[in-house]
Design a protein around this nucleic acid. Structure first.
Length: 310
DNA sequence: CTAGGATCCTGTCAGC
DNA sequence: TGCTGACAGGATCCTA
């Protein structure tokens, strides 16, 4: 589920937690679900993280031994870092049989970081959705993934750009002009515009939320054939994509801070900025019409039938 | 080549 | 209370 702003927020957070002595060396990797880790996890042991990068929705951990990890969260992936002191506090609570709690959460928040798919139960790790645990000297990184669509893959750093997924990625909206997008749309004239902007080889980073929000901004009906989008409108799409993702980044994307309140319940950061996503049945803030939900290209799609033109 | 549907998985929710 | 089907912030594979 995480889209570009969420992944970028995770990149920044883990960059603070893991780089060099903050995480230390990898002591071991526990692969609890085989399909969630591609390659030989033993290669990673003894290495430390030198740099966190991102390409589209993929996170890249560069390691000190010229290897890298590519992590894609897909629909339900989460990455959660627990500094060792926090982990040990949790273990103590479990062993004493007391209810897991964050009575000292204010304090502990400085020792954890996490983001990705919003779920409760992030106080209890590892849990049954934990697929991979990377044990660092100074803490633990949990990769949780309910649906097992996501993965971590180990490969040489100089092969990252040649990776099947990475090599197909288009530019992100900030690096692309409307004219460039317009030209690309001409190769998919018959497909609905929403499906085309979700294609990571056309423009990288948009997912189901920001695709809907972008189309709302550009006042284009998600079902409109891509061939009927003008060059000027393509410019609006690029502008809108930058704007909605910038806004989400500013709000911190989907981190634990935003998703999980101190009592462990789920927050809803979407309320902060969504104009159409999950607002079906509510009034369009631009024209007052009712926002509708339908299906386009197999994906739930939210739009205003009045101000988004066919 | 494109377009569209099925598929990978687990969990939740609405409706009987 | 079960059961059933639909659906989920992604991407790929298969078919026409």
């Amino acid at each position: 589920m995480p889209e570009l702003p969420e992944v970028e927020t995770i990149r920044r957070g883990l960059n603070d937690c893991l780089i060099k002595e903050k995480g230390g060396k990898v002591l071991s990797i526990e692969v609890l679900e085989k399909k969630s880790f591609i390659g030989d996890s033993a290669i990673v042991v003894d290495a430390s993280v030198t740099q966190m990068r991102r390409r589209g929705k993929a996170l890249i951990f560069d390691l000190s031994n010229d290897m890298s990890l590519i992590c894609h969260l897909r629909m339900t992936g989460q990455l959660v870092w627990w500094e060792m002191s926090y982990y040990e506090e949790r273990v103590r609570q479990k062993e004493s049989g007391s209810t897991l709690n964050d009575s000292n959460y204010k304090n502990m928040l400085d020792h954890t970081f996490g983001g990705g798919h919003p779920t409760d139960a992030l106080l209890d790790l590892p849990n049954k959705q934990t697929r991979v645990i990377i044990n660092f000297e100074r803490g633990k990184l949990f990769f949780n993934d309910q649906r097992k669509f996501g993965f971590i893959k180990v490969l040489p750093t100089d092969k990252v750009e040649k990776d099947a997924f990475i090599s197909k990625l288009a530019k992100e909206p900030w690096d692309m002009t409307g004219e460039e997008l317009y030209r690309k749309l001409q190769h998919h004239k018959g497909a609905p515009i929403k499906s085309v902007i979700l294609d990571q080889s056309i423009v990288a980073g948009l997912g189901n939320i920001y695709a809907d929000e972008t189309l709302y901004y550009a006042k284009i009906n998600p079902r409109r054939k891509a061939g009927l989008v003008s060059e000027k409108e393509a410019g609006k799409l690029i502008e809108g994509a930058r704007l909605v993702m910038d806004k989400s980044l500013e709000a911190g994307g989907s981190t634990i801070r935003n998703y999980v309140k101190s009592d462990g319940t789920k927050g809803d950061y979407l309320e902060l900025f969504a104009e159409v996503f999950n607002r079906q049945g509510q009034k369009c803030r631009r024209c007052g019409n009712i926002i509708e939900k339908t299906k386009v290209g197999g994906r739930g799609t939210h739009y205003c039938p009045r101000c988004q033109k066919d």
